[in-house]
Amino acid sequence: MATVDLPLPRLGVGAETAPRPIKVVLNWGRRYSLWVFNFGLACCAIEFIAASMARHDFIRLGVIPFAPGPRQADLMVVSGTVTDKMAPAVRRLYDQMPEPKYVISFGACSNSGGPYWDSYCVTKGVDTVVPVDVYVPGCPPRPEALLQGIIKLQEKIASESLSSKGMRAKYGGHRAATAAEVTRPLVAPPTREVVGG
């Protein structure tokens, strides 16, 4: 199958030459309205939910857990074990998110496979599938640890450069998806041959 390379993300001339105060304001806006898409996979998802509940309440930090889907989200929190069977779906949903997008890897399993690193069916870290911005350690991390990870991400966003070069450095490289990867169907199961028919 011929693959078509997607164009790398590019910003308009206006963004490249925007004066510094505008960039600061833009980053400030991005920082405090992170609509989050919870990729809840395992135990960590429960702690993610706990962080979104009244006790820890990450809306205080500007993280809004009401994104209806990946297409309306800025931040994806991968919480839980990514299995090889699930990994294509993670990539797909990541590709559906509009840029600029951020990923928090929440918990040992999504950081590096964690407890299941020697399992035959677990992806050794979600960063082999999508670029990750912040890694939160823990198994599962406590909700406060997620809040700290979010604060860390916000600091990163605040210091982000807005040039196309910076964007390319982030999304480009060997992890960029090709058009084929975004649009290809899931792997079809082997067709069953009719025996004796």
């Binding site: 040992a108 407890p115 640890a145």
Partner: peptide, 28 residues
């Protein structure tokens, strides 16, 4: 990134060299 926070290492250490701390703020 691998640690599963079970505490076995702390438990088996015969010379009290490992301890649990409640600190959690080390996202990277």
């Amino acid at each position: 990134s691998l640690c599963m926070y079970c505490g076995i290492c702390v438990e088996v250490c015969p010379f009290d060299a490992l301890f649990w701390s409640p600190e959690f703020e080390y996202a990277e």
